[in-house]
């Protein structure tokens, strides 16, 4: 299912300055991600996984190098261009779900569609389809604060896919869930990858993530240590 090149990172570096101290996370990082990939990025805490995901998602900018997406450069886009680019191409899934507590489940899922030209009726239809896909059709009107962690993460998945982006970026999507629920979520991501052709990049600690992903990269001290493909 792996198609053409979706991402290309060329000589990417990223450093933070804390006071007078300069902390370098990446120095000359090169990698590419193909369309249809399901990539798990693993590594010890503090190894730069979230930072890498932020760079891929265009919510943070590299200090050096270039990031190419679909054959166009994205690291030099302006704030508002990036916001539009994210809206069009990326669905995010967070460790702590990041749902809006004052909105019910379907309103949360609808949020990305408010950035599109879809009519209220079309939005409703798409939201219903996404809720169906994550198996929460009967909970559409529930407040997310009254849901279990697994249900909340499914609402978040519905929100990430409702506008049909090519790419889903997940930061520790099972980090806050028990084993059984974590497996449900991982299967769901796998389904999205296999059946719907979504490219997924997932940062995780979860050792069983390897059972679901197509490819696993180990990040250590800002460098990839490629290990064998699993399954």
């Amino acid at each position: 299912m792996t198609g053409g090149k979706l991402y290309d990172l060329r000589g990417v570096s990223k450093s933070f300055t804390k006071g007078k101290e300069k902390i370098t996370i990446f120095n000359d990082l090169n990698m590419s991600i193909s369309e249809g990939d399901f990539l798990a990025i693993m590594g010890p805490s503090g190894s730069g996984k979230t930072t890498l995901l932020n760079l891929l998602g265009g919510v943070d900018k590299p200090t050096g190098g270039e990031i190419w997406f679909d054959d166009s450069r994205v690291d030099n886009l302006s704030e508002s261009q990036l916001a539009k680019w994210r809206a069009n191409n990326i669905g995010f899934i967070f460790q702590f779900y990041n749902l809006m507590p004052m909105l019910n489940a379907e309103r949360n899922v609808e949020l990305p569609l408010l950035l599109t030209k879809l009519s209220a009726k079309e939005r409703k239809k798409n939201v219903a389809a996404a809720m169906e896909l994550v198996g929460l059709s009967d909970r559409a009107k529930h407040m997310t604060s009254e849901m279990s962690g697994g249900q909340q993460q499914r609402v978040a998945i519905a929100r990430a896919i409702v506008s049909d982006p090519k790419l889903i970026l997940c930061d520790e999507p099972t980090g806050d869930l028990d084993r059984k629920t974590a497996d449900e979520i991982l299967s769901m991501l796998q389904l999205l990858n296999r059946e719907f052709g979504k490219t997924i990049v997932m940062v995780t600690h979860d050792p069983s993530a390897a059972n679901y992903a197509k490819r696993v990269l180990h990040l250590d001290k800002g460098e990839f240590v490629e290990k064998d493909l699993v399954a």
Partner: peptide
């Protein structure tokens, strides 16, 4: 903060 940042990540404008 986190709600604002999440909306921004989704693509809402500043």
């Amino acid at each position: 903060e986190q709600e604002i940042a999440t909306l921004r990540a989704i693509g809402f404008s500043n």
